[in-house]
Simulated scan of single mutants.
Amino acid sequence: MLPSIALPNSISPSRRGETAPMAPARVLRVLRLLADQPDGLTLAQLVAQIGVPKTSLYSLLHGLTAEGFVQRHESLYRPGPESFVLGAALVAARSLAIVATPFLLDARAQSGETVLLAVIDRSAGRLTYTQILESHKPVRYMVPVGTTRPLFATAAGRVLLAFQDEPWRREYLSSASLRALTDKTVTNRRQLERIIAGIQATGHASTIGEVTPDVAGFAAPIFEPNSQVNAAIVVGAPLERGKAAAERLTRVAIDCAEQLSQALGYRAQQTQFHTPTNGKA
């Protein structure tokens, strides 16, 4: 059970008259800016970044400071102890499945296809589909929750491989049993290395009939705040429908994974990847 937390717009009656109304979006913007700059920001710097009147922002900061969400030292504002309490509570409550659900729903609506959450099992060298939202179309990709797949053969598995530590990935590629699942499965180790290098550059992967003959898969990595990748988003579709919409389905997978990564607290320093523009995933 989460601790009871007084949010910053719950100003006590004795102090309510001292502060201007605090719009939730503005409060969150202030807290995020301060979280990104632990050394602190001045009032002038905050005004420049948020673009609000100085007097309004000063009143907002006064209320946040009174509640302990912000602390002030000389001219610098920093996150206060209540911000860390709130952050710890949110982290404790955070479950990938819970956080992912609205993004998976949106990805299914955008793609019209089945969307899956795949999680890596490093000890087994496999992935597990832990969450699946099936397409509403009569003909659709279907697989039970809990299904496992080898990393080397699947779109999600290759994405997961691409963003693991290099020594682990090298060991996996040198020792894994590369048994073909269909006549299109890539089992040549050098070819797999080239495919994974491409995924590292583009940030997405696709398989066309390599795991199941009549299925196409499109995947992108989910980054955690420390940049580690333990899960991936997959859009799965019947083969011909997937081939015809490869670029669009790849874009849906990338967007879903990026948005979910941000929701988990990941902050990319810059655009890392090249996205498909030629109709190929």
Rank of each mutant, 00 (worst) to 15 (best):
Q49K: 08
D183F: 02
L76F: 10
V119C: 03
L104K: 09
R140K: 11
A92E: 14
V143P: 01
E67G: 07
A109I: 12
A107L: 00
T207L: 01
D255M: 09
Q164V: 01
Q110K: 15
G203I: 14
G157Y: 10
G209Q: 05
V229Y: 00
S227V: 03
V85D: 05
E240Q: 13
P213C: 05
R122S: 15
L34G: 07
V85Q: 06
Q131A: 09
G87I: 04
L31G: 04
V27N: 04
S206L: 00
V47D: 06
G17C: 01
A48T: 06
S14Y: 04
A257M: 00
K184D: 00
S123V: 14
C256N: 02
L104R: 05
V52G: 06
L151G: 12
F223P: 01
F152N: 13
S95Y: 09
A232Y: 07
A281I: 00
V30T: 14
I120W: 03
G51R: 04
L192K: 13
I120P: 12
K184E: 01
A220S: 08
R32I: 13
L31S: 06
R267L: 11
L7H: 12
I50F: 09
V139K: 09
K184Y: 06
L260W: 01
F69D: 10
L61F: 03
A216K: 04
L264D: 07
S177W: 10
R16P: 06
L43W: 03
I199H: 07
E258F: 00
E210N: 05
A92G: 08
A118H: 13
S174I: 03
I254W: 00
